[in-house]
Deep mutational scan, measured.
Amino acid sequence: STVKVRLGHLEVTLHNVSEEDVRELRELWKNGADEEDLRRWLEEWKK
């Protein structure tokens, strides 16, 4: 499914993403990950 995730002022649209992935991303964000960390996660996730 396609999910729009809003993290601060960063809005990311993920395609074919699982609930688990979204949860993981939100956890990262809650734990103080900055945009760099999130971008890195997204790069990994896209592979």
Rank of each mutant, 00 (worst) to 15 (best):
K46S: 14
L14P: 00
E24T: 14
R6S: 11
R40E: 08
R26D: 15
R26T: 14
W45P: 02
V17W: 04
R40S: 09
E43N: 06
V12D: 01
K47L: 06
E43H: 07
V5E: 01
D37W: 05
E44S: 11
L42R: 00
K4D: 03
E36G: 12
K30Y: 12
E11S: 11
D37Q: 14
D21I: 09
D34M: 09
K4L: 04
L38M: 08
W29L: 15
L25W: 03
V12M: 09
R6D: 03
D21E: 10
E36R: 08
E19R: 06
K46M: 15
N31H: 09
W29H: 15
L10R: 08
S1R: 13
K46G: 12
E35S: 08
V5K: 01
W29G: 11
R40M: 10
G8P: 03
K30L: 14
E36I: 09
N16E: 05
L25T: 00
H9V: 12
L38W: 04
W41A: 02
D34L: 11
A33M: 09
H9T: 12
D21T: 09
V22R: 07
E35F: 10
R40C: 04
E36K: 12
W45E: 02
A33P: 06
V3L: 06
E35H: 07
R39D: 03
E20H: 11
L10D: 12
E24C: 09
G8W: 01
T2A: 07
R23F: 10
L42E: 01
S18P: 07
E36Y: 05
V3D: 01
V17P: 06
D37P: 03
E24R: 14
W41V: 02
L7D: 01
R6K: 13
L10V: 13
E24V: 15
E20Q: 14
H9K: 13
W41M: 02
T2R: 09
W29A: 15
E44R: 12
E27Q: 06
K46C: 04
E20T: 10
G32M: 07
W41F: 04
K30W: 09
D21C: 08
V5D: 00
D34A: 10
K47I: 06
E36S: 12
V17L: 12
V17C: 03
E35Y: 12
R40P: 00
K4Y: 02
G8E: 03
R26I: 15
H9R: 13
L25A: 01
R39G: 05
L14Q: 00
G32H: 06
T2I: 10
K47F: 05
R39S: 07
W29P: 02
T13P: 01
K46R: 13
L10C: 11
S18Q: 07
R26F: 14
E20Y: 04
R39M: 14
K4E: 06
T2S: 10
S1T: 14
T2G: 04
L28M: 13
V3K: 03
R23I: 10
W45C: 04
K4Q: 09
H9W: 10
L38T: 02
S18H: 07
E44G: 09
L14K: 00
E19H: 08
K30F: 13
T2W: 04
L7E: 01
R40I: 09
W41D: 00
L7F: 13
V5P: 00
E24D: 12
V5N: 00
N16P: 03
R40N: 12
E35M: 09
L25Q: 00
K47R: 11
K30M: 14
L38V: 06
K46F: 15
H9D: 14
R39N: 08
L28S: 02
G32D: 08
L38R: 01
H15S: 07
R23Q: 11
R6N: 08
T2F: 06
V17F: 05
L14M: 07
E24W: 09
V3F: 01
D37H: 11
W45F: 12
N31F: 03
S18W: 03
K4H: 10
H15P: 03
L42H: 02
N16T: 02
R26V: 12
